[in-house]
Amino acid sequence: MQTVHVGGDTPYQIRIGAGLLGDGAALAAHVRGRHVLLVSDAHVAPLYADTVEQALRAARPQIELARLVLPAGEQSKTLASFGAAIEALATLGASRDACVFALGGGVVGDLAGFAAACWMRGVDVVQLPTTLLSMVDSSVGGKTAVDIPQGKNLVGAFHPPRAVFADTAVLATLPPRELRAGLAEVIKYGALGDRLFFEWLQTQHQPLLAGDAHALTTAIARSCEAKAAIVARDPLEKGERALLNFGHTFGHAIETEQGYAAVANDNLNHGEAVAVGMVLAARLSARLGLSAAQDTQRLIDLLDACGLPTQLPAGLSPHALLGRMRLDKKNLAGRLRLVLWRGIGQAEVVPDVDEAQVLQVLADMP
C-alpha cells in the first residue's frame, strides 16, 4: 500500500494498493451525509459495482445509495450523460452533503466529477479509477468535463475529489490495449519532467506490460507524485500545470477528428492518441531548434517497446487537425500555445507557435 498526498487549498490523499474497492470503512469515511450516487459504466459495473456497494452498506447501513450505469466508451462523455447524472442525483434527493463515487475509467471519472461539481454548486466526489490511465491521470487533480462535437473537455469545471482509491487488483482484468494506453500517460511524466523516471521505464517496460504488481504500483505512485506536486502549485492551470498536457493538444485533436469512437471504429483511444501527440510535440520541438532529434528517437523507441502507436492514423487531414488545435484551452488571443520540450524531462509551455511549422510537422509525420 502506498499513499500520495495532494496539497494545496483542498488537500486529499491517493491510496494505491490491492483490495481497496472492498474496504468499506475507508470508503465510507469520506461520506459526510446519507446520500450516495455510484456512477459506473456497462463494462466496469458488472465486475466491481456490487463490491463497492456492499462495502459501503456494511460500513454505513443507513446510507441511501443509487446506481447510475452509463454505456462504456468516450461516446458517453456527453452533455446528455451529464444530464442523466444530474437527474439521478435529483431522483435520489441528494443533499449538499451527498457523495458521488466515480467507479471506472477517465470517462466516468470526468463525467461523475462534473456532475458532482454542479449539483447544488458542488458536492463531494470520490474517485475509484479502474484503468491504469485514470489512476495516473484523470482521477488526480480535480479536472472534470464532458466532450462536445467541437472538441474534447470543452465543458467542465475544476472540482478536486475528497479522495482517490487506486485498487491495483483491478488491473488484472484490464485488456492489454488499455494497459498500454495507460503506459502512455506514465511515460508522459518522465518525458515532461523526470529524466530518471523515463530511464527507469526504459528498463522496466517489460514487467509493466506483463502486469507485475510491484512495477505497476511503483509507476502509479511515481506518476501521481509528479502530478500531485504540480497540481498543488497550480490547481487551476494558470501556469505550470499546463505541462501535464504534453502531447495532449495533438492527441485531443486526433480524438476529436476521429469522433471519439475508438472501440467501434478501431480508432486511437486516448492513451494511444497521447502517444502520437507526444511524438508530434517532440518532432515540432526539434524542428524549432528546442531539442535534439535523438531525444525524439528515444521517446519513439520507448513507445514502440510498449506497443503504442507513434504515427498518425491514415486519412487524417493536417489542416483539419490544426483547426481542432485552435480550440485548445491553453491558447491565448487566438494564438497556439503548446507544451513542447528541450529534451527528455524538460517540457515547457511555448506561446505563439507558428501554425505553418505545426502544419508542416503534421504533414511530414510518417
Rank of each mutant, 00 (worst) to 15 (best):
L327T: 09
V339I: 14
S285V: 01
G277M: 02
L327E: 13
L332D: 12
P313D: 07
R287T: 11
A305D: 03
A305R: 09
R283S: 11
L280N: 08
L268Q: 10
V276R: 05
R335Q: 14
L280E: 10
L290F: 14
L316K: 03
G271W: 01
G289Q: 06
L312T: 06
A273Q: 04
Q294I: 12
M325Q: 01
L322R: 00
N331M: 04
P318H: 01
G315R: 04
D328L: 03
R298T: 09
L340E: 09
R326I: 08
E272Q: 12
C306D: 06
Q311L: 14
R326A: 14
R287Q: 14
A282M: 13
R298M: 11
T310M: 02
N269R: 14
L327Q: 13
L316W: 05
L340Q: 08
V339L: 06
G323H: 02
L340R: 03
L308C: 07
Q311E: 15
R283L: 05
L299N: 10
R326V: 05
N269L: 05
G277T: 11
L321T: 04
L302M: 01
N269K: 08
L290E: 10
R298I: 05
L268I: 06
D266F: 15
N331V: 00
L288H: 06
S317Y: 04
A286M: 07
A333T: 12
D328K: 03
L303V: 00
W341E: 08
T310S: 11
E272I: 01
A264H: 10
A262I: 02
P309Q: 14
R337I: 09
H319M: 09
P309W: 09
R324Q: 11
L332Q: 11
Q297N: 13
I300K: 12
C306L: 07
I300P: 05
N269V: 08
R335P: 00
K329M: 09
A333N: 12
G315Y: 05
D328S: 02
G277W: 03
S317C: 10
D301E: 13
V339E: 06
Q297H: 15
V263A: 15
N267V: 01
P313E: 06
L312G: 03
G307W: 04
L332C: 06
L284D: 07
L299D: 06
G271E: 04
A292N: 15
H319W: 14
R335M: 14
P318Q: 01
A275R: 07
R335H: 12
M278P: 00
G323Q: 01
L332M: 10
I300H: 14
K329D: 05
A281C: 01
I300Y: 08
L316H: 07
V339Y: 02
L340K: 07
A292C: 13
A282I: 01
L299Y: 11
R335L: 13
L302P: 02
A282P: 00
A320D: 14
R326K: 09
G315N: 04
A262F: 15
A264G: 03
M278D: 01
G323E: 10
R298F: 14
V274Q: 03
L321H: 05
L322Q: 03
Q311D: 13
L288F: 04
A333H: 12
L322T: 03
H270A: 09
R324S: 07
A261W: 11
G323D: 07
L288Q: 09
V339N: 03
G323F: 09
A320W: 07
L268W: 02
S285L: 06
D295A: 10
L327R: 13
A320S: 09
L284K: 06
A286C: 15
L312D: 08
